[in-house]
Simulated assay, not measured.
Amino acid sequence: MLHYEDIEIGVVQKFGHYEVTRAETIEFATKYDPQPFHLDDDAAAKTHFGRLSASGWHSAAMTMRMIVDNLKKNEQAGLGSPGVENLRWLKPVFPGDTLRCESVTLSKRRSKSRLEMGILQGKVTAYNQNDEPVLIMESAGLIAVRDPQAPLAE
C-alpha cells in the first residue's frame, strides 16, 4: 500500500485506457448535459465541433475513472480530495477517441490538524489517441500517512 511517505514530487505516471463510445456520449449528455452538439449529429455538424462531441463533464468523468483505476491498481492509500482548483477542456473529445492520462505530484505536505493524512497537489492531463491533450486539471488529494506519530517536516 502506497502512503504519503512513498509519493515523490515530480515523478510522472502514465496510465489509463478509455474508449469513448457514441452510446455513452449520448447517454451521459442526455442525463447531465443535454446540449444539441452532445446529442444530435445534425445539430453538432452546424457547430464549431463539426460532429457529435462528448460533454466536457463527461471527459472529466472518464478521466476520473482512469485516475481511480490507477489508484486501485497501485494500492494507494487515498482518502479523497477537497476539490479541483483548475479544470480546462483543451480539445473536444469525440466518440471513437481513446483517452489516457499522465499525472505528476507538484507538491506535498502533512496536514497540521489531522496528523494521519497528507495533502498532495497534483496535475493530471488526459490525452487522446493522437497524444493531443484534451483536458488538464490541478487538484489536491488526501492520502494516509504511514506513521502519524512521525514529526512534521518544517
Rank of each mutant, 00 (worst) to 15 (best):
M1H: 10
M1N: 09
L2W: 07
H3E: 06
H3T: 14
Y4P: 02
E8C: 04
I9G: 01
G10H: 11
V11P: 04
V12F: 06
Q13I: 04
F15N: 01
G16D: 11
Y18L: 08
V20E: 12
T21K: 03
T21D: 10
R22L: 15
R22Q: 14
R22V: 10
R22G: 07
E24S: 07
T25D: 10
A29E: 03
T30R: 14
T30Y: 02
T30V: 03
K31R: 10
D33T: 11
P34F: 02
Q35Y: 12
P36F: 03
L39P: 01
D40R: 04
D41A: 11
A43S: 13
A43T: 05
A43C: 04
A43G: 05
A44W: 00
K46I: 01
K46T: 05
H48C: 04
H48W: 08
H48Q: 12
G50W: 03
R51H: 07
S55Q: 04
S55H: 03
W57V: 10
S59L: 06
S59Y: 01
A60S: 15
A61G: 10
M62T: 07
T63L: 07
M64P: 03
R65Y: 10
R65P: 10
M66I: 08
I67A: 06
V68Q: 08
N70G: 02
N70C: 08
L71I: 15
K72Y: 13
E75P: 00
E75K: 14
Q76S: 05
A77C: 11
G78V: 15
G78N: 15
L79Y: 02
G80S: 05
G80Q: 05
G80N: 05
S81E: 14
P82W: 01
E85C: 03
L87V: 13
L87G: 03
R88L: 04
L90S: 11
V93P: 04
T98F: 08
L99M: 07
L99S: 06
R100Q: 12
R100G: 05
C101K: 11
C101Y: 10
C101M: 11
E102R: 02
R109Q: 13
R109C: 09
S111G: 11
S113F: 13
S113H: 09
R114H: 15
L115S: 15
E116I: 01
G118W: 01
Q121C: 11
G122M: 14
G122S: 14
K123L: 03
K123W: 01
V124Y: 01
T125C: 09
A126V: 05
A126Y: 03
Y127G: 01
Y127A: 02
N128D: 15
Q129E: 13
D131T: 05
D131W: 04
E132Y: 00
V134T: 02
L135M: 14
I136F: 01
M137C: 10
M137S: 08
S139H: 12
L142N: 08
I143L: 15
V145G: 04
R146D: 12
R146T: 10
P148I: 13
A150C: 06
P151K: 12
L152I: 14
L152F: 06
E154C: 06
E154K: 12
E154D: 15
E154N: 12
